[in-house]
Amino acid sequence: MPRHIDVLGHVNNAVWVEWVQDMATAHWDAVAAPEHARDYIWLVVRHEIDYRGNIGEGETVTGETWIPGDPQGATSARRVDFRNAQGKVIVSALTTWAMLDRETKRPARVRPEVVAPFRLDA
């Protein structure tokens, strides 16, 4: 979309962050156990993004997301890689999310069974 393009003719960095968050949310909505989706919500606490390339208007990108390791207390890391049409990773993100109890809005310890369906090694 033209509104996603910056003055250099590439996807704006803020748009990549939006896409990372959209993918994580869609992944949770699609895969989380119903009781987990009912009881918990997630909040981003950190983004780390490496830009190794970019795409311009009319070009396509595909994204892949997964949980790369074990949770730490109330937080869990998530990877997102975006590949260009040639299959090269052009943007790679590592985000840290905090899990909150939906009712109290307080941090909740992330149990392994909550993130297990999102791991590549599961």
Rank of each mutant, 00 (worst) to 15 (best):
V31K: 03
G73P: 05
D121Y: 02
A33D: 09
G58I: 02
T95A: 04
S76G: 12
T104I: 13
T60L: 07
A14P: 07
K105V: 05
A77H: 01
T60W: 09
Q72W: 08
M23L: 10
V44R: 10
G53H: 09
A14W: 14
N12P: 05
A116Y: 04
H10D: 15
G9P: 15
W16K: 00
A77Q: 09
P117V: 00
D101Y: 14
R46E: 05
P117G: 12
V11N: 08
Q21T: 14
E57T: 15
P71E: 04
Q86G: 09
H47D: 07
N13W: 11
D39K: 14
K105M: 14
H36P: 08
V44Q: 03
V89F: 13
V61A: 08
P68T: 08
V45I: 04
L8W: 05
A77G: 06
P117F: 01
V80K: 04
A24I: 07
R78D: 09
M99S: 00
E103L: 11
M1I: 10
V17F: 07
A32Q: 04
Y40D: 02
T25S: 11
I55W: 06
H4P: 01
T96I: 01
V7Q: 11
N84G: 06
W42K: 12
A93T: 03
A32D: 01
L100N: 00
H10I: 12
T62G: 03
Q21Y: 02
E48G: 03
F118N: 06
G56S: 09
G56P: 02
